[in-house]
Design a protein around this nucleic acid. Structure first.
Lengths: 326, 326
DNA sequence: GTGAAAGCGCTAACAC
DNA sequence: GTGTTAGCGCTTTCAC
């Protein structure tokens, strides 16, 4: 209950607290013998430095925050793995927070990260224009956005080229003979959604197809949104000959809608989707799949973040990895 | 970059730091006028108390740790929502850590929770016998296990009666005419896996059916494990007439295996599974489903934890919620 | 009711 | 190389 302090260790080892500190923080060399005594005392007493007290002096923590919009989404999960691996290699740990695409929750967790003086934050902003990271930047806490961009601050970002990926998928569908491609878009405030919609339009243009607003329905990046958007598109006359769904969870909903409408893919209608979903019933073979290097996004974002944490200074960098079409 | 301290606020408001502290922590009454001046200064400077420095004095943090074994699993995700809601209602925040069922990672995050002096920890232990929470209990940090039990320490736990739920599911399958029920079990070290296997055996016994070891295959609570276990069971002669899968991710794998084997459920083989999976393609109607009140588990576990955090002292409590059979 | 002073556990200057 | 001292930002006695 009562904590073992550096003083206790010092007393036990017969040295001063500073010597203990030096041993534990590879400071100036300490005589081998004292060193041994200190380490023995540490082991014996089960001493663990109080990280708060340490921070008060050093202003350095070794915890990174990862604030993501939907912890349920495997897309983010795999990214978190990449982040964890990169972080732990550098001696940092990672804590997660889930915002549910909710700006208020997001702000709360940004506050937590600031209050806890986390070393740095990885963020997938719920909104490009309304998410504010001022609380972090004011305190000099670096932020790297993952997947999505942020317009309220100039920060590093690691993600993929969503415009091109979406465009390629459309062209692939056209190659397969599709002419009326329904698009299930994501939330207006999220840059990936904006980019993917732009890519869809570019794709149509490149294929010489007209853009028809009624073929675009807005979803929310969640299962239910995908389902109802798909129903809306399937009710059109004539029916679309393809559905392009702009994220994985909405795909689950769209597939459910197809089943409910008694339609099968790829026979009755073609499907193109963003993000890998092999975890869900291995549907991938029968659809055009844009998969993102999620683990790699997490890893590279963390490495970038750690460079900022280390104090490196360079203009905001946008790392664009490539998505692949299957 | 440089932090605004309580001193700055005090200077700005023309009072002493202690007065600022009193205003901010509803201490002894402060004259209304000073109070106003302080609050104005706080707002004006954008002052945020340094939680580390505060902790050093008060030994009180307002962050709860949630250490779970698989962040990918919606089962846990929904629990986290329950925890977040209960926590934020009490002014606490929640940070998550993902252990991947890996004892080493788990220990690392237990260390983080201890080092950060989190107020309390919700844990779904990767192993009942090898997970150690000593680092936390030594420091007086309360722990409540969620879903799973822990044998290395006597702590509160909130979960469901897995034995009974599994038994009921078996009886339901028997009612439907099944006689050779294959069971895909979970990892030996996890209590829910042990309990569910016990329930399976009880169910067989209650139905007057023999227990056949070859009908039980061990999985790992993940998709791939479910898939290979299912393949193993489907290769038996004669083939089982039902598959009972002991968690949701393995169900995804098992369903994939069925498809690969060209089998359909419920026509060719019956299916009973633990945990809700409506998020994955709405399969639920065609199988026996044991669903757990995950949100409620998270909520109640957190409320229990917060009582411990508040210093309440009572014998370790096991809250057993009921799982329902659909 | 308010301010001055001490101290939480740690590390970084500074002496020796 | 090692110990002593001061101080990080905060809260909490203790005087007034």
């Amino acid at each position: 209950m009562s904590q073992i302090t550096i003083k206790d260790v010092a007393r036990q080892a017969g040295v001063s607290p500073s010597t203990v500190s030096r041993v534990l923080n590879q400071g100036p060399t300490v005589a081998a013998e004292l060193r041994e005594r200190v380490l023995a005392a540490v082991r014996q007493l089960g001493y663990r430095p109080n990280s708060q007290a340490r921070f008060l002096r050093t202003r350095a923590t070794t915890v990174l925050g990862v604030i993501i919009s939907d912890i349920t989404n495997p897309f983010f999960t795999s990214m978190v793995r990449g982040a964890e691996d990169a972080a732990s290699k550098a001696g940092y740990s990672v804590v997660l927070a889930n915002t549910d695409e909710d700006l208020e929750k997001e702000q709360r967790y940004i506050e937590v990260a600031a209050a806890e003086n986390m070393a740095g934050v990885l963020l997938s902003p719920a909104s490009a224009t309304r998410t504010s990271i001022a609380l972090l930047t004011e305190r000099g806490i670096p932020v790297v956005t993952i997947d999505r961009r942020l317009q309220t601050a100039r920060v590093d970002r690691v993600g993929v080229n969503n415009v091109k990926a979406a465009q390629d998928a459309v062209l692939r569908l056209v190659d397969q003979g599709c002419r009326r491609i329904g698009f299930i878009a994501g939330p207006t405030e999220v840059t990936t959604a904006v980019d993917r919609l732009a890519g869809y339009r570019h794709g149509l243009k490149a294929a010489g197809l007209p853009y028809r607003p009624e073929l675009v329905v807005r979803g929310d990046y969640r299962i239910e949104g995908g389902r109802s958007a798909a129903h809306e598109l399937l009710g059109l006359q004539p029916r679309p000959d393809a559905l392009f769904v702009s994220n994985n969870l909405m795909t689950l909903g769209a597939v459910t809608a197809l089943r409910e409408a008694g339609l099968r893919y790829p026979d009755d209608i073609a499907l193109a989707v963003f993000d890998d979903m092999s975890w869900a019933l291995g549907l991938s073979e029968e659809m055009t799949l844009i998969s993102q290097p999620t683990y790699e996004i997490g890893r590279q974002a963390t490495e970038l973040l750690l460079r900022r944490v280390a104090g490196e200074n360079f203009p905001p960098r946008h790392v664009v990895l490539s998505a692949t079409l299957h």
